[in-house]
Design a protein around this nucleic acid. Structure first.
Lengths: 186, 186
DNA sequence: ATCAATATGTTGTTTAAACGATAGATGTTT
DNA sequence: AAACATCTATCGTTTAAACAACATATTGAT
């Protein structure tokens, strides 16, 4: 079933994305030109356009594919969604947000809306898939709602913690677990 | 005058060479297959053969281009050949030899002849070029002899030190400077 | 020693990427 | 505001690399 994509495509995509991530740490997003990116990626500028529509398209894909994958990977060891998984994801979100707010500096604020959208989308898809595996008897729409609530609640809580940082994240996440019910009964 | 080489060629060469250097740190040379190298380099196996004749050809080019460049670079700050330059090169050789004897481990001994040949070639070319700049009035053949003697003597001394390690390299190099005359008078 | 599996080179064909040229947008200096 | 440079985006042509297939070696286990 695998489509067998030409490895050159994968390599070029990775070169461009990695170069962009690298540049984002030094320059502001608006000051990064396509030429900057393709130069650093050792790729022709025209080639950029056969992979991405523009810089924003690239940012979107970098966030969803490259960055979100890290978060997912950290929790992919867990078999089912449980309190441990929730804790792990919460901490991952904070870890990621902290790292990009350090890396991107000034340009960070300008892109929080995009980042938030992508983050919630990915989280929702992730929860939805896993919920269906975990509770195959529940109706799809019901599990979808469950996934939406979980992803929004978790992301919102993480953002709230980021702004206040009153307690330790480990203690904070305990509070979330008191609110969200993890059980589903047939 | 620059030939303007297709960047894909440079990129692929670098990918292969870097992958090889990386693998050399983990595996013995004889156990590294072309497939290993091209896999790590994200390059097709057939592509390898349009850049290198075989594994030995690759090793040769890695040593002369990639590694020797480091040594040269360390002394390229110096304007002319003097006692400081000699010291710097001597220490660079030792540094390089120590690092590959740590990295390549068992396969190291098997390739010392090749490494030695390449090292002396590169050193000789380096000294020859610089001697001609420094003493343009001297005859070319005379300076060539000078370059040969310098390169062999330095490399030999470095190898001798490596095997015995009696004194500190800084003290050892002083002894060399007592033997080799650095002056040239018209 | 035999057989199977894996590695080495090589070749013809297909495809992704490089190149050069282009036109329009954006931005900076005078 | 006009001149200038730089960036964006696209397109046809050329080239390097991917692919698949092949014959021949090496290796390794039975």
């Amino acid at each position: 079933m695998e489509k067998l994509i030409d490895p050159r495509i994968l390599r070029t995509r990775k070169l461009i994305m990695d170069a962009f991530i690298e540049l984002s740490m030094k320059k502001e997003f608006k000051d990064i030109t396509i030429k900057d990116i393709t130069n650093a990626a050792t790729v022709n500028r025209a080639t950029f356009y056969s992979h991405f529509m523009d810089k924003f398209d690239l940012l979107e894909k970098v966030l969803s594919e490259s960055v979100m994958r890290e978060v997912i990977q950290e929790v992919s060891t867990h078999e089912v969604i449980n309190e441990e998984t929730i804790k792990a994801i919460f901490l991952s979100i904070i870890k990621f947000q902290t790292s990009i707010s350090n890396q991107c500096r000034r340009s960070y604020e300008a892109f929080t809306p995009q980042i938030e959208t992508i983050f919630k989308q990915e989280l929702q898809a992730f929860f939805s898939e896993w919920a269906q595996k975990q509770w195959p008897n529940q109706s799809k729409t019901e599990l979808e709602v469950y996934a939406v609530i979980l992803s929004w609640a978790l992301y919102g809580a993480a953002m709230h913690w980021m702004q206040n940082q009153t307690s330790q994240p480990e203690d904070y996440v305990e509070q979330i677990l008191h609110i969200i019910k993890m059980e589903k009964h047939k």
